[in-house]
């Protein structure tokens, strides 16, 4: 029999391709500093992937590029390489590799690494990225939606949640979409196919929850321009995703349950 091409590595290569325009925009905005962060993070992740390849026979995955890029983009204030090494080691090992690698994890490794950075080094101020990054995310997002890698439900749910809560809080609903780090996080961290909810209704709820949390944290806490909002929203939503799925399944599968005496 024949098999399709959409193996795990193919999906992660598509994510990498979707990143290319964002990388170009980031180069224009920040040039060398971002590249340095990306390089340090990528080397660290690859070392950990090799460790788990030898110790646990887990295959390597190009998803390392996506994780490293997320750290490079959203941890813009970091200047010390050792901080990135520490945070990315924590993120890739605890967020991904100990579960069996990308596909078996339940939180995005990049989100874990960034949350570690924000908590461990609170004195560092992180700048959000600008409108060019926000625009450059769009072609990649369209590619991923067309190839069926991202769920349109999660994306629409997140946009609706973000706009509704922004309106409730009396802010400008268009403002979040001009923030590059926020748009990038919504596409590549929140809508990650592995970590988002996987049931049909669950995807709407998950997207809506993530969008609402971005708006809540952004407007009420760190500021909508800060990358922390989208990272912590993605972290919280991913933690709730299995619960959302379990609820949807419990509510909809009663009819298939067997009634054994």
């Amino acid at each position: 029999m024949t098999t399709g091409i959409w193996q795990r590595n193919m999906v992660s290569w598509m994510l990498v391709v979707a990143l290319l325009p964002v990388a170009a925009a980031l180069w224009i905005e920040q040039d060398g500093a971002a590249l340095l962060r990306f390089g340090v993070a990528l080397v660290t992740i690859l070392i950990w992937q090799a460790v788990f390849l030898i110790a646990r026979a887990q295959p390597l995955s190009p998803i390392a590029v996506v994780t490293a890029f997320a750290v490079a983009l959203l941890a813009s204030g970091i200047t010390e390489a050792w901080q990135i090494v520490l945070a990315v080691s924590f993120g890739t090992v605890v967020g991904e590799q100990i579960f069996g690698g990308w596909g078996r994890n339940f939180i995005h490794a990049g989100v874990v690494a960034l949350a570690f950075l924000y908590f461990a080094f609170p004195e560092v101020a992180h700048q959000g990225t600008g409108i060019w990054v926000a625009i450059s995310v769009l072609p990649g997002a369209a590619l991923l939606l067309l190839t069926g890698i991202l769920s349109g439900r999660v994306m629409i749910g997140a946009v609706v949640g973000l706009v509704v809560v922004t309106l409730v809080m009396g802010a400008d609903p268009g403002a979040p979409f001009l923030q590059g780090s926020l748009v990038f996080g919504m596409v590549f961290l929140v809508a990650d196919p592995v970590c988002s909810a996987s049931t049909r209704g669950g995807r709407w709820l998950y997207g809506g929850l993530a969008g609402a949390l971005i708006a809540l944290l952004g407007w009420a806490d760190v500021g909508i321009a800060a990358p922390q909002a989208v990272v912590f929203a993605a972290l919280l939503a991913a933690i709730f995703a299995p619960l959302i799925d379990a609820g949807i399944i419990a509510a909809t599968t009663k009819q298939w349950r067997e009634h054994n005496a």
Partner: peptide
């Protein structure tokens, strides 16, 4: 060895996988 290790790679539950199947079930779970 780098392409396929002893532990098979997991599948990635993309939207396309869900769309491809006909029965109305919770496909990914």
């Amino acid at each position: 060895a780098l392409r396929a290790a002893a532990v098979p790679a997991p599948f990635v539950p993309t939207q396309a996988v869900e769309n491809a199947l006909g029965p109305k079930l919770h496909v990914v779970p």
